[in-house]
């Protein structure tokens, strides 16, 4: 509207009207620009506020005891050792199981089923899984692994996290394989290599930085997941590395400690929150720099 009235140079155009219109347009532009800067500043301030709170409350509660003692009843000397170890075991095993499946699916989508109906269906379902509420994955694993096998277990937690890992790795693997120029594929095929060798030795190798980025992001994502573990590995206040028994994890421990009325438990929850956030953000930053340095 403003654009078209500006564009039509009427013969009786009044210079004062034009100047007023110009000033009005400039004013609108400046107002919107200011609001946009404000929006970005608000976003950054929110991140800063979260980090500041975590550091302030977390460092206060941080001590060597957090890493050397297992969770204990309120009032006694307790730490988070079993929760940290449980989180590491479950996140790493979940990633270890989910990654190969995710890579194969991503390879299937990029190399075999670009436009087939099955490929499109798999791509659609994988994208839905990527954004589906993680609490539902917890309920699902509860139904198929906890109920029939007589109780909460670390393995059920691992399975839930693996299901979350799969679609993340699928997405990055497919995206990265699609970046590889077809001339490279043709060159390999022209040398007489079979397709599976072309994929595993050439395509995967060229896309490795991107795929590793995806895996790191997947680890970061599942390390902070709470909801799916509530119904699968449940949590365990004693030291246990037995995956067939309920297993402690950092997010679930934070959840139950932060909601408790005990000062020392809440303090421990802040310490755990600081540990987990620093770990997750560090993984994210490493993953991003890795991707940028290679592509």
């Amino acid at each position: 509207m403003a654009l078209s009235s500006m564009m039509s140079p009427g013969p009786r155009k009044d210079a004062a009207v034009a100047a007023r219109l110009g000033a009005k347009r400039k004013r609108a532009d400046i107002i919107i620009r200011t609001l946009c800067i404000l929006a970005t500043v608000i976003g950054l301030l929110l991140l800063a506020s979260i980090l500041a709170t975590l550091f302030y409350r977390g460092i206060e509660a941080m001590s060597l005891r957090v890493f050397t003692h297992v969770t204990a009843p309120p009032g006694s000397e307790g730490g988070l050792l079993n929760a940290i170890v449980g989180s590491l075991i479950q996140s790493l095993l979940g990633t270890l199981i989910g990654t190969p499946i995710g890579m194969l699916v991503g390879t299937y989508l990029a190399e075999y089923a670009k436009d087939s109906w099955l490929g499109n269906a798999v791509r659609f379902v994988s994208d839905i899984l990527l954004s589906a509420p993680s609490i539902l994955i917890g309920l699902f694993v509860y139904q198929i692994l906890v109920l029939p096998f007589g109780g909460f277990s670390g393995w059920a937690g691992v399975a839930a996290l693996a299901i979350i890992v799969i679609p993340i790795v699928v997405r990055t693997t497919e995206d990265m394989l699609q970046l590889i120029p077809n001339t490279l594929r043709e060159a390999v095929m022209g040398l007489g290599a079979p397709k599976w060798k072309m994929i595993t030795l050439i395509c995967w190798r060229s896309a490795i930085a991107g795929i590793v980025t995806g895996i790191l992001l997947a680890v970061a994502r599942v390390a902070g997941e709470t909801a799916p573990l509530l119904f699968t590995s449940l949590g365990n206040n004693a030291w246990s590395t037995d995956l067939s028994k309920p297993m402690s994890s950092l997010p679930v421990t934070i959840y139950s400690f932060a909601g408790s009325p005990f000062e020392d438990w809440i303090a421990l929850a802040w310490a755990g929150a600081l540990i987990i956030t620093l770990g997750v953000l560090a993984l994210n930053i490493v993953a991003r720099t890795l991707l940028r340095s290679r592509i």
Partner: peptide, 16 residues
């Protein structure tokens, strides 16, 4: 920095 907001686990948002 804005994308890192998405990386913060939801339990942290809950506590904050």
């Amino acid at each position: 920095a804005i994308e890192l907001l998405a990386a913060v686990p939801s339990i942290i948002y809950g506590m904050w």
